[in-house]
């Protein structure tokens, strides 16, 4: 089998999230492939737009019938072209790749999710997984920071998230428009840490967002008693192959695509704090 060859997938649904971000529901055209397809939260796909290129994208959810959703923001050639697609259009897709979040290790523990901007995308699946397997996990706390309230993704699900038993959702933004009715706090995600309920004892932290945000979030968590081994980060690199061959996503002795994208903070600490 040729791992580089994308499979055709059809766009089943498009949902507008913000002015530059949409959520797409995708299904492989090949029914057999579709049936055997079950990506784990935190894994990624290589999305192809023929003539434009291929790009690694996170999945924002899976459904029972095997269709997946991905949430894409316009940041480059491929993602820009994706935003022009409509329901019924075809794209190329291969994967899933990468390791995904350490859900098994999180079982029996309190889960703290710290996300910034698009970082919420690969963690939406984790929230849903915990919702569906509530007994397996301790308390859930989600700290989500975005640029403005209008840039927040999955707003329509926040109420549902809050109703998950023993769950706390804390939202913060960089700026609030003057005429807003939003009750969001202003500040970085780290500014939510003092009022955080999760204690470092028996907890696991899942972090995703811009690298600079993750760097500071991890540092702050360290100062309030969290051990490096408790913290997991999902990294972003511009991958060309997704299968550990093109070299672009190397970080120290690891490939983000093959050994990650989710890493234990202890393993990659020297590489995300530039010397």
């Amino acid at each position: 089998m040729n791992e580089y060859s994308p499979n055709l997938a059809v766009i089943k649904k498009v949902r507008k999230e913000t002015h530059d971000t949409n959520t797409y529901t995708l299904e492989f055209s090949d029914k057999k492939l579709q049936k055997s397809f079950s990506p784990a939260p935190g894994q990624f796909m290589m999305l192809s737009l023929f003539g434009i290129g291929e790009s690694a994208i996170s999945l924002s959810g899976t459904s029972n019938n095997g269709s997946v959703t991905t949430t894409i923001r316009n940041v480059g050639s491929v993602t820009n072209a994706v935003l022009r697609l409509k329901e019924g259009d075809f794209i190329g897709m291969r994967g899933p790749y990468g390791n995904g979040w350490p859900l098994e290790r999180a079982e029996g523990k309190n889960v703290l999710i710290v996300v910034g901007g698009m970082g919420i995308v690969p963690l939406r699946g984790v929230v849903n997984y915990i919702k569906n397997n509530r007994k397996k996990f301790g308390d859930l706390e989600i700290i989500y920071g975005a640029r403005t309230p209008d840039d927040m993704l999955f707003r329509y699900e926040f109420e549902k998230w809050k109703q998950i038993k023993n769950t706390r959702l804390d939202l913060t933004v960089d700026e609030l428009p003057i005429e807003t009715t939003s009750k969001c706090k202003i500040g970085l995600v780290t500014s939510c840490f003092p009022s955080m309920k999760t204690h470092h004892k028996n907890a696991i932290v899942l972090v995703c967002g811009p690298e600079i945000m993750m760097r500071y979030a991890a540092k702050c968590l360290e100062t309030i008693g969290f051990k490096d081994q408790q913290i997991y980060l999902s990294l972003e690199r511009r991958m060309k192959c997704g299968i550990g061959k093109c070299g672009h996503c190397q970080i120290g002795l690891k490939y983000v695509c093959k050994d990650g994208p989710v890493f234990n903070y202890a393993d990659i600490k020297p590489f995300i704090h530039p010397l």
Binding site: F50, G51, I52, G53, E54, K240, C241, K245, C246, G247, H248
Partner: peptide, 14 residues
């Protein structure tokens, strides 16, 4: 050294 870049080219027919 094995690193490579991947890119698409479209001909003028588009």
């Amino acid at each position: 050294c094995y690193c490579y870049d991947v890119y698409d080219t479209m001909d003028l027919s588009l």
